[in-house]
Amino acid sequence: MRHFLQCGRYGFALDATPLVMGILNVTPDSFSDGGRFQSLEFAISRAEEMAADGADLIDVGGESSRPGSPAVPLDEEMRRVMPALYALRGLGKALSVDTCKPQVMREAIIAGADMINDINAFRAPGAIAAVADSGCGLCVMHMQSTPATMQQNPDYGDVVADVIAFLAERAAALVAAGIDRKRICVDPGFGFGKTVEHNFALLRATGRIEQELGLPVLAGLSRKSMIGAVTGRPVGQRLAGSLAGALAAVAHGAKIVRVHDVAETVDALKVWHAANIG
């Protein structure tokens, strides 16, 4: 199945090497980087580094979604995200904003965001209206419950079928609002209300998700607890496991991988592409 993702100023053909989305957390409490890039100067430097390392998109997030994390007030999220977004407009890379707040979506689009990455799947009142006429790409993610409670006994009848049904319903809601399907990608939501077994079942089913929905799949496994559960490594020592997870996702059909370690992932994908495509 051929895929093309229309992402604001950018159009991505998703039939060759998958896209790499670099993670830029401008939060004081990110699970993986501990707020190292919270200051604007460091955030810009990190984004420039990821761009030089080969990232296709930079995903800017101002609200931690780690398990147990509380919601961030609107004004605080705006204070964190908007200066970075304006500063990065000339980077020459597609800019994504990781938010579930319609007000942040609107301001981000005005500031030049090319994608809105919503862990709440555009369910907040006004979220679809905020993005409908923008032309930016949209990532629809599955999450059971909320970040504050999502890892408290997650339960499914059939995790793969349930996630596919949810993503299909949310994509249909976007299309019903007049949004072109070429603007939409989907994320199974690894670690968002799932056990380790759920996560790996979804990873193995990446191709099925893409086939049944007819939409490109974004996979975000980088440094997550599912990697730690298999390797026994703490967050700061999960590079090898994260690279293996990214390659597994791509082998199963993912078209975008969301990662912390851009240079290493880009190199791994180059070798994977050479070995499998030629």
Results as ranks from 00 to 15, higher is better:
101 K>I: 08
102 P>Y: 13
105 M>T: 06
105 M>W: 00
105 M>S: 07
105 M>R: 05
107 E>W: 04
108 A>F: 02
109 I>G: 00
109 I>M: 10
111 A>K: 06
111 A>D: 00
114 D>K: 06
116 I>E: 01
117 N>P: 03
117 N>Y: 09
118 D>M: 07
120 N>P: 09
121 A>R: 06
121 A>G: 07
123 R>Q: 15
125 P>N: 13
126 G>S: 08
128 I>N: 01
128 I>T: 05
129 A>P: 04
130 A>K: 12
131 V>D: 03
132 A>I: 11
133 D>Q: 14
134 S>H: 03
136 C>P: 05
137 G>E: 13
140 V>P: 02
140 V>M: 02
141 M>A: 10
141 M>D: 00
141 M>G: 08
144 Q>C: 07
144 Q>R: 15
144 Q>I: 02
145 S>T: 14
146 T>A: 13
146 T>C: 08
147 P>D: 01
148 A>C: 11
148 A>P: 06
150 M>K: 03
151 Q>M: 05
151 Q>F: 05
152 Q>V: 14
153 N>S: 14
153 N>D: 15
155 D>T: 14
156 Y>T: 05
156 Y>Q: 02
158 D>C: 10
159 V>E: 10
159 V>A: 10
160 V>C: 02
160 V>L: 03
161 A>R: 09
161 A>G: 01
162 D>Y: 11
163 V>Q: 11
165 A>K: 04
169 E>L: 11
169 E>I: 01
170 R>T: 00
172 A>R: 14
176 A>F: 01
177 A>L: 07
178 G>H: 04
180 D>H: 00
180 D>L: 04
182 K>Q: 15
183 R>T: 09
184 I>V: 14
184 I>M: 09
189 G>N: 12
190 F>W: 11
193 G>T: 10
197 E>W: 11
197 E>V: 13
200 F>C: 12
200 F>R: 07
201 A>Q: 15
202 L>G: 01
204 R>G: 06
204 R>H: 12
205 A>R: 03
205 A>V: 04
208 R>E: 15
209 I>K: 03
211 Q>V: 05
212 E>F: 06
213 L>W: 08
214 G>Y: 00
217 V>T: 04
217 V>W: 08
219 A>Y: 02
219 A>P: 06
223 R>E: 11
223 R>V: 07
224 K>T: 08
224 K>F: 05
226 M>S: 12
226 M>G: 06
227 I>R: 02
228 G>L: 07
